[in-house]
C-alpha cells in the first residue's frame, strides 16, 4: 500500500526531468557571442547617456571628470535661467501644436488613402520626401522659401511650419497601417444600422484607432522637440531648446549643459515611452480583432 502511494511522488520528480531540457533553438550555439554583442551594444548606447547624467550632478565648474561631489545646483541654474525656461516653453508649445496639426493631417490623409484616386502614389511620395531630404538641405530650402514669400522667421510662423513639414511623414507612416488594416465591415455594419458617415467616424473608426492616434501624436511631439537642423535656419530671434543648447555650446562650455541635456533626454524619452505604450495597445487590439475574425 505505502509503496503504491509513494510511487506518484517518485514519478512526479524523476531525476532526468530536473535537468534543463537540451534546447534545439536555432543559433543556440552562438549564445556567448550574442551576449558579448548585446553587452557592447548597450554599453555604446547607454554609456554616454550615463556619463551625461553623472556629469549633470558633478560639483565642478568645468564640464568633465574627475567627479568632485554630488550637487543639484546645475539644475537650479537651468531652472533659474529665463532664457532657458523661455526656450523650454517654446519647444513644448511648438511640439504640442506641431504634433496636433501633423496628427490631424496624417489622419485625414490616411483616411483618404484608403480610397483609390488618381495620382495616389505621387501624393504618397510627396508626403514622404521630407524624410529623405538631408536636414541641412531641408533647412536651406525652407529658409529660401520663407525669404521669397516674405514671411519673417519666428516661432509661430516659420518654425511651426518647418516642424509640421518634418513630422508629418512620420505621423502618416505610423497612422496609416492602423487605418489601412481597419475592417471595412465594421463601417458597413454601422452604416447599415443607420450611422451617417460622420457618426461612423466618431463612434466606430476613431475610438478603435485612438491608441494609434495618441501614439502618433506623442512620437510627433518627440520629433519636434528634438528637431535642430531645420529649426536653426528658420528660428529667427525665437529659440527652441536645441537651438538654445547649441548657442551655449558654441559660446562657452557652460557647466549647466549636462543638466540641460538630461532634461531634454527625460522629456523626449518620456513622451516616446508613452507613445510606445499606446502603440503596443493599438497593435494588441488589432491582434485580438484578427483572432476573432478568423
Amino acid at each position: 500500500m505505502t509503496s503504491i502511494a509513494a510511487r506518484p511522488a517518485n514519478i512526479a520528480k524523476p531525476r532526468s526531468a530536473r535537468k534543463p531540457a537540451r534546447d534545439h533553438r536555432p543559433y543556440g550555439g552562438y549564445r556567448t557571442a550574442l551576449w558579448i554583442y548585446a553587452g557592447a551594444f548597450y554599453a555604446f548606447l547607454y554609456g554616454p547617456l550615463l556619463m551625461i547624467v553623472l556629469l549633470s550632478f558633478n560639483n565642478s565648474e568645468i564640464v568633465g571628470f574627475p567627479f568632485q561631489g554630488f550637487t543639484v545646483r546645475w539644475y537650479e541654474v537651468v531652472f533659474a535661467s529665463p532664457a532657458l525656461l523661455k526656450a523650454l516653453g517654446n519647444s513644448l508649445a511648438v511640439g504640442f501644436l506641431a504634433a496636433a496639426i501633423a496628427t490631424t493631417l496624417a489622419l485625414t490623409l490616411a483616411m483618404a488613402f484608403r480610397h483609390q484616386f488618381r495620382g495616389k502614389s505621387i501624393v504618397l511620395y510627396l508626403i514622404l520626401v521630407p524624410i529623405i531630404i538631408p536636414g541641412i538641405i531641408g533647412g536651406i530650402v525652407l529658409l529660401i522659401f520663407f525669404g521669397f514669400s516674405g514671411i519673417r522667421s519666428s516661432l509661430w510662423t516659420t518654425v511651426l511650419v518647418a516642424h509640421v513639414n518634418w513630422v508629418l511623414p512620420f505621423a502618416f507612416l505610423t497612422l496609416f497601417p492602423r487605418l489601412h488594416g481597419f475592417d471595412r465591415a465594421l463601417e458597413e455594419a454601422a452604416m447599415d444600422l443607420g450611422a451617417k458617415p460622420w457618426e461612423i467616424f466618431t463612434r466606430i473608426v476613431f475610438p478603435i484607432i485612438r491608441p494609434g492616434v495618441i501614439a502618433t501624436a506623442l512620437f510627433s511631439f518627440s520629433l519636434s522637440f528634438d528637431e535642430f537642423i531645420r529649426t536653426i535656419f528658420v528660428s529667427g530671434f525665437d529659440r527652441t531648446i536645441p537651438v538654445q543648447f547649441w548657442g551655449l555650446i558654441v559660446d562657452e562650455l557652460a557647466p549647466e549643459l549636462p543638466a540641460m541635456a538630461v532634461l531634454i533626454i527625460v522629456i523626449s524619452i518620456f513622451s516616446s515611452l508613452i507613445g510606445f505604450y499606446f502603440m503596443w495597445r493599438a497593435s494588441r487590439a488589432a491582434a485580438t480583432y484578427d483572432r476573432k475574425a478568423s
Binding site: L186, M191, L193, K292
Partner: peptide
C-alpha cells in the same frame, strides 16, 4: 438609397461586431 435609408439590416459574414 444608402444602407442607412433602407428598411434592411444585415448580419455580416464575420459578424462585424463593434469590438470597443
Amino acid at each position: 438609397a444608402p444602407p442607412y435609408a433602407r428598411s434592411t439590416n444585415m448580419i455580416f459574414q464575420h459578424l462585424a461586431l463593434f469590438p470597443h
